[in-house]
């Protein structure tokens, strides 16, 4: 069986190895991705973002359990940061998901950002496609949760869940510019802690404020759900919330699903275009014996400037 058939048959080892190639940007993986593309588009993608320690992994674990009860198969991608000093990483999200290790209906992959910003890895969208092609019904994606610019997930997921904990109202206020806009559902996790209701109220205020602003583009009013993930409390509400959002997207009278798909496709397309264009240009330069390092030297020595160098390169290589 070739690799394509193995992936389509849901073969774990083959899938795992392909994901590795994608992550490492091995060029042959692109050919495989191309072949797999027609088989994608069936999985439902749910993204989780929020600061470290709020309980994203725990929620993913619980939701995976809930989806398994429905008989759905689950793929999980969990992103942790790469150390900027060493390039290494410790990936620990799996610790929270141990109960699924022996369930063949759940595939978990830990990823390191490898210098990519925005909360995901540059490979995440491709990996979603692979898990989709391998037959996972639902794909849960956990972002790094460090930056305030973690909005990339909203371009990859059908439903984006922003996770907070009691007492984080102020923090949300400060970062609302990015995060408030992307949440389809807001979770106040650790609702066992003091101040949970207050945080719910604060978020509701922010949501209402935001609704007024984005009214015509989108008719969805973000839900707010309280959970206590460690004990599984509120998970049913969250699950129902996701279903509701899904129904909303599928209702299709306003083309909401199409919006999501377009956003994702555009994002992926632009990224691929950027990568390929760069690769092509660098390749052409090198074939003419021009090294990037030489260009860099010119800029450093003030013989030229970055802007002129780019104009010149483009003019010559894209003729």
């Amino acid at each position: 069986m070739g690799i394509i058939d193995q992936i389509l048959a849901g073969e774990v080892r083959a899938t795992a190895r392909l994901l590795r190639d994608i992550d490492d940007q091995v060029s042959s993986s692109q050919t495989i991705l191309r072949e797999l593309y027609p088989y994608t588009g069936k999985a439902y993608v749910v993204g989780f973002t929020g600061s470290p320690g709020v309980g994203k992994s725990t929620l993913v674990d619980q939701l995976a359990l809930r989806y398994r009860k429905e008989g759905k198969t689950v793929g999980i991608l969990a992103v942790d940061p790469t150390s900027p000093f060493s390039g290494g990483a410790i990936l620990g999200d799996r610790i929270r998901m141990q109960r699924h290790f022996l369930d063949s209906g759940v595939f978990i992959r830990s990823l390191a950002t490898r210098g990519h910003f925005g909360g995901l890895t540059r490979s995440t969208n491709d990996m979603i496609n692979v898990l989709d092609a391998m037959g996972k019904d639902v794909i849960l994606v956990e972002t790094v949760g460090v930056g305030q610019d973690e909005v990339e997930i909203a371009q990859s997921a059908h439903t984006t869940i922003v996770v907070t904990i009691p007492g984080m109202g102020d923090e949300i206020q400060a970062i609302k510019a990015g995060i408030m806009e992307i949440g389809s559902i807001f979770v106040v996790n650790k609702a066992d802690r003091e101040g949970s209701r207050k945080t719910v109220r604060e978020i509701r205020n922010l949501v209402e404020l935001g609704m007024r602003r984005r009214e015509e583009s989108n008719g969805w009013e973000p839900l707010i759900v309280e959970t206590e993930a460690v004990k599984g409390r509120g998970i049913e509400d969250l699950f129902q919330g996701i279903e509701k959002h899904r129904d909303y997207l599928l209702a299709n009278d306003r083309g909401q699903l199409d919006d999501v798909l377009q956003k994702r496709a555009r994002n992926q397309l632009m990224e691929a275009l950027r990568d390929e264009a760069l690769k092509t240009i660098v390749g052409r330069l090198e074939s003419r014996g021009v090294l990037i390092d030489d260009l860099v030297r010119k800029v450093v020595d003030k013989e030229s400037d970055p802007y002129s160098v780019v104009q010149q390169v483009l003019a010559e290589e894209l003729r």
Binding site: P52, G53, I90, G92, I95, R96, Q98, V230, K231
Partner: peptide
């Protein structure tokens, strides 16, 4: 009472 595993951050 439920079970517990370590937060395991580094």
């Amino acid at each position: 009472f439920g079970t517990y595993s370590d937060p395991g951050s580094f």
